[in-house]
Design a protein around this nucleic acid. Structure first.
Lengths: 107, 107
DNA sequence: TCGTTATTTAAGAAATTAACGAAATACGCA
DNA sequence: TGCGTATTTCGTTAATTTCTTAAATAACGA
């Protein structure tokens, strides 16, 4: 949880998550979308991975990154439920996901 | 959004939000719950207030803090919708909520 | 007014973060 | 084996964060 919120505190990392929302990308493709050096992007990716928000897989020369959605949704959802007695929107999302047989809700 | 995520990156500030989930508290009562000096707590509170996550009101000698729930819920909810394709069905719910005059949806 | 309490502001030290370029590592291809 | 590409690690620097103590501000009550 600490790592998730620290990871989300950076706009570069949130942008990376947004890019990975629709498709997986390799490290170079991600770096090309952020006006930033490749080593800096690599560091951001390792922070996201340590937080469990993305996963990487090396295929040939490339390292592909994809989002790990459950961890993001569950962490934010759990926090909202802990802190917000009226945290309805995420609760509904959670319920809808459960009804569809999606990942479980921690709260 | 940037300020909200920066505010949430600190465990002390998340703990403050949790304390304020159920009741309002004055600055001294919050400081008493965190093993930290009062000036440090005051600074955390000002960061939370700048992020729109809490509001303060001075009553006599004391400054009372309360949570502003909509901002937390809407920011996290909007981010999940942007980043998590799995959360898309919720957008219809958000539209319905807006039509009923409930809290607004940033997505 | 004076003394006490509650809170914030100011100043500064210690730790962390974020970026860069250079170098190292790993892979693919010939 | 050797070259070129992709990615990460290393070493460094600048900026930011977080905390502390001391001082300032504001309000209460005698």
């Amino acid at each position: 949880m600490q790592r998730v919120f620290e990871a989300l505190a950076s706009s570069a990392r949130r942008r990376i998550l947004a890019y990975l929302a629709h498709t997986e990308l390799n490290a170079g493709e991600i770096a090309a979308r952020l006006a930033m050096s490749k080593p800096a992007v690599s560091q951001h990716l390792s922070i996201l991975e340590a937080a469990g928000l993305v996963a990487s897989e090396k295929r040939g020369q490339y390292v592909f990154y994809r989002q790990v959605q459950e961890n993001l949704v569950n962490t934010l959802n759990g926090f909202v439920q802990e802190v917000c007695p009226i945290g309805r929107p995420l609760r509904r999302e959670s319920a809808a996901r459960a009804a569809r047989g999606g990942p479980d809700d921690p709260g």
